[in-house]
Structure formats: structure tokens, C-alpha cells
């Protein structure tokens, strides 16, 4: 019985630590680093931001994972004194958060879902912000011959014909929707043991493709931020471009602050930061600034 007595306080303290860690990341583990950095910024400012000066930005994992928001959000917070809480989730969940009024601004990349969001009256002030590109990546051996395909749809058709392993995110995210639209374009209904649906984020899906020597469709930012043995087999096709939109949630209680954030993203300062992002790390910018009112 003795060891139990020694262990109990140890376990208890572990539990408390664990609980503390949980409460620090209420939305998603991925949101934790961003929150940490925004609290830091707030602490530096002499006038700490009051609670009604806080807005929630629901966005996709790609902007978070690439590190773009780590640059943009602190810059905005320093300029405006408004605190931004970032919830990084899939596009589907981000839009749902907007519909339920749990977010003030959306930064997502699924044009048709965005248009539906606005036309159903959930959002106003929609802008194009930027775009990045999707890549078809796969094993260096390229058994399906994707490199010699002319278009993305052609490449997918070759993968399906060879029944080469393909990993889909299958999570209804922007990337997933893009992938589905390319299959549709190719006139193929992907099905069979060669087509796996991971139901996970881009990073995990890439990891899986690397492990399984499979093809997948990825956004450039996430791909460049990972060190993997996968090769870029196709890029630059028109249907591989990926525009991001920013939308104000109509039901927001803080329309002014929300609008300020949007103005920052589509304004000169924001656009310049977007254009520079990634140049020092990857030697090229990951997002192309393309602000435009819809």
C-alpha cells in the first residue's frame, strides 16, 4: 500500500497540470500556439485590451499551420488594439461557427460555400484576400505518370486508371472540396481500395501519404512546411489555384472591430505582409495577395 501513498500526490499534480493544459486550449489543440502569442502581444501593451475589444476569427487549419497568422495577427493587434482569438478548424466547421454566431470573422477557402454563406444572409462584406496554389504530390517513382499529364483532371484520371494509392482528406475542408471538384471535372467517382479517406487535416494526410507512398492533393504552404519524401508532381494548373475569402459574420456583436480586421487583411499593410510571408523560410511567397471586394 505504501507506494500508492507516495504516488497519489504525483498523479494528482499530473492531473492538475493536464487540466490546466486543457483549459488553455478550449477550441482545438492547434489554436494554442496562436493564443499564446496573442496574449504575449496584449501583455506588452500598456492598456490591456478590454473584453469587448476581442473578436473571434474562424479560419482553416492551412492559414494557422503555415504560420501566416502568426505574422498578420500580432501586426493587426499592435495597430488596432483589438485582440483576435483564432479558431483554426476545417472550412466546414469554420462556416458552421459563423452560422451559429460563434465567430465574428471567417477566413476560409471554399468559394461555393462562402457564396452560399453570404446568400443565405449569414455574412456580409465578403472580400477576396489572396490565393495560394494546390499541388499534386506523390512518391518520387510516380507510378501513375502524373508528371506527363496536361491538367489536374488528367492527372487524377491517370491515378484512377492505375489504381495508384490516393489519400483524400475526406473532411469536407476547402482542400477536400477542391479535390472532389477535380474528380468531378475528370468525370470519375473515386472508389475502391486505392482511394483512402483519412478524415484528418492536411499535415496528417501528407504524413500518411508519405508513409503509404501515395498521391494526395495538398496546399503549397502546408507541403512546404513539412519535410517529407514526397515530390511535387503537378502545379500551376488553373484548377489548382486556391482563393481565400474573408467575410464578416452578420450576427456579430462587434461589427466595427470585425470590419477593422477585414480592412487590415485587404488593405496595403496586410497585403504587403501576405506577399512577403514565407520568402525568408521557403525562398518564395506562399500566398499571392489579391484583395478585391466581391
Amino acid at each position: 500500500m505504501k507506494p500508492i501513498r507516495i504516488i497519489t500526490p504525483l498523479l494528482m499534480s499530473m492531473l492538475i497540470l493536464f487540466l490546466a493544459a486543457c483549459s488553455a486550449a478550449p477550441a482545438q489543440p492547434a489554436a494554442a500556439p496562436q493564443q499564446a502569442s496573442s496574449t504575449e502581444t496584449a501583455a506588452k501593451q500598456p492598456q490591456s485590451a478590454p473584453a469587448d475589444n476581442e473578436i473571434v476569427l474562424a479560419t482553416t487549419t492551412s492559414t494557422q499551420d503555415s504560420g501566416l497568422l502568426d505574422v498578420l495577427i500580432p501586426a493587426f493587434e499592435a495597430k488596432s488594439g483589438i485582440k483576435v482569438k483564432v479558431v483554426a478548424v476545417g472550412t466546414g466547421q469554420a462556416i458552421k461557427l459563423g452560422e451559429d454566431g460563434n465567430a465574428d470573422v471567417l477566413l476560409v477557402h471554399s468559394r461555393s460555400a462562402e457564396d452560399a454563406f453570404v446568400s443565405k444572409g449569414f455574412g456580409v462584406n465578403a472580400y477576396d484576400v489572396m490565393y495560394n496554389q494546390f499541388l499534386i504530390v506523390g512518391p518520387a517513382g510516380d507510378p501513375a505518370g502524373v508528371t506527363s499529364a496536361k491538367t489536374a483532371a488528367d492527372a487524377f484520371a491517370r491515378i484512377a486508371e492505375k489504381q495508384a494509392l490516393f489519400i483524400s482528406r475526406g473532411d469536407d475542408s476547402g482542400t477536400d472540396k477542391k479535390e472532389k471538384s477535380i474528380w468531378k471535372e475528370a468525370g470519375i467517382n473515386p472508389d475502391g481500395t486505392w482511394y483512402l479517406s483519412s478524415g484528418q487535416g492536411m499535415g496528417a494526410t501528407l504524413q500518411m501519404a508519405d508513409e503509404k507512398q501515395a498521391y494526395t492533393l495538398t496546399d503549397e504552404a502546408t507541403f512546404l512546411s513539412r519535410k517529407l519524401n514526397l515530390q511535387v508532381l503537378m502545379q500551376g494548373d488553373k484548377s489548382l489555384l486556391n482563393p481565400y475569402g474573408i467575410i464578416q459574420v452578420k450576427a456579430t456583436a462587434k461589427p466595427d472591430a470585425a470590419m477593422q480586421l477585414i480592412q487590415f487583411f485587404v488593405g496595403d499593410d496586410g497585403q504587403k505582409l501576405i506577399g512577403q510571408f514565407g520568402k525568408d523560410t521557403y525562398g518564395k511567397s506562399l500566398f499571392v495577395p489579391a484583395a478585391k471586394k466581391r
Binding site: 466546414g92 466547421q93 462556416i95 461557427l97 473532411d171 469536407d172
Partner: peptide, 13 residues
Amino acid sequence: TTAIILETRMGNF
């Protein structure tokens, strides 16, 4: 459990 995570991420609460 993983299906729950996926449904949540897709907004299918």
C-alpha cells in the same frame, strides 16, 4: 472517437 472528431470538424454537430 475519430469519427466524432471528423464530424465536428465538418460542422456536423
